[in-house]
Design a protein around this nucleic acid. Structure first.
Lengths: 184, 184
DNA sequence: ATCTGATGAGACATGGCTATCGCACTTGCG
DNA sequence: CGCAAGTGCGATAGCCATGTCTCATCAGAT
């Protein structure tokens, strides 16, 4: 069953987002299976990481779809995006951490495609006058994913309450750290 | 000379911020010395990474000192902080990437101390009414360093112009993505 | 010019992780 | 009840990076 593989992959993501170099032993233990079974499911460590990255990308992309980021008011779209993406913050943390450990052209292309979709949303928002034009859309996209990964790390290490994470991401990203009535 | 060791360490930071698992071979090549000399300078990989982390932390802490973040208006202090910290974005990227690969209690304590200083700054700003109180000071600190590391990665990979990086960090962090006159 | 100290290049042993295999065990089904 | 499929456990082989060593070379000092 594919569900079985996916549950193993998600366990792998959970460990690898915290320890990007965790041994197959650790991954197997985290997934509740033995090393042998892990190797029966995936032909090797590279394949495992690749599939985990693919799954993480699919899930986050599905979140973009669910948030319908191409539709409607850009600001509301970003709010929907944050709502839909925060549950996958651990996947984002895994991808940011692992992208520098393992570079696969296919994975990279998939990431770029997702990044481009988000950048397009910000560009749309800039053209509509909602977002600040001083900040490049590509940087907004980069920063959004960095903060999403940061949420993942902070939640995993207990520095941020899961319930507060969506607000933390949305409010900081959209409104910044300054109080509104204090802004010049 | 200590300068010699430091220049090697900075080269190591440069590589390890991009490839946290780079081999001693790669680090030596990046530093322009041989593997043998690298081992003469540092008793092992752990020691090298530890010293590199220590140097990075000292340099970023020095930036906090230079910015005098404990003094004056909190908002101006954050602007000074960003100005002083952006040149060390690569070090921040190295630390965020490596912190999950190598945990040393001393390094961790040093990081915590620095994080606490920044969190204190945000707390001060919240008490003075400049910063939003809905966002925990600890989260603001975490987010600031995440964005700083993000700036480091984006610059290294050519997605962000170095000249624009300070503005990108300061403006997004302080003011958020929304246009001010659009904020409710 | 010679000596000294440091460096680079390469060989070598070691350890940890990976990947595979064989065997015993459980689970579910006929 | 017995069979088949899947799983866990242990052993094993191989690989890659690390760490150490030796030796030749080079630059600077005397």
């Amino acid at each position: 069953m594919a569900t079985d593989r996916d549950s193993v992959l998600l366990a792998a993501v959970g460990i690898l987002s915290r320890q990007p170099t965790a041994a197959m032993d650790d991954i197997a233990r985290a997934a509740g299976i033995s090393r042998a079974t892990l190797h029966r499911l995936f032909p090797g460590r590279d394949a495992l990481v690749r599939e985990a990255a693919g799954l993480a990308l699919r899930r986050i992309s599905a979140a973009l779809d669910a948030a319908a980021i191409e539709d409607g008011d850009p600001v509301q779209a970003v709010r929907r995006l944050a709502d839909a993406a925060v549950p996958h913050a651990a996947e984002a943390a895994f991808l940011t951490g692992e992208s520098r450990l393992f570079d696969d052209s296919e994975i990279w292309a998939s990431w770029e495609r997702m990044d481009a979709r988000v950048a397009e949303l910000f560009l749309r928002g800039q053209q509509s006058g909602a977002f600040r034009v001083e900040l490049p859309a590509a940087w907004l996209s980069e920063a959004f994913f960095d903060l999403l990964a940061g949420v993942g790390w902070a939640v995993q290490e207990g520095r941020l309450a899961p319930r507060a994470s969506t607000t933390a991401l949305t409010e900081l990203f959209l409104g910044g750290a300054l109080r509104r009535d204090q802004q010049p």
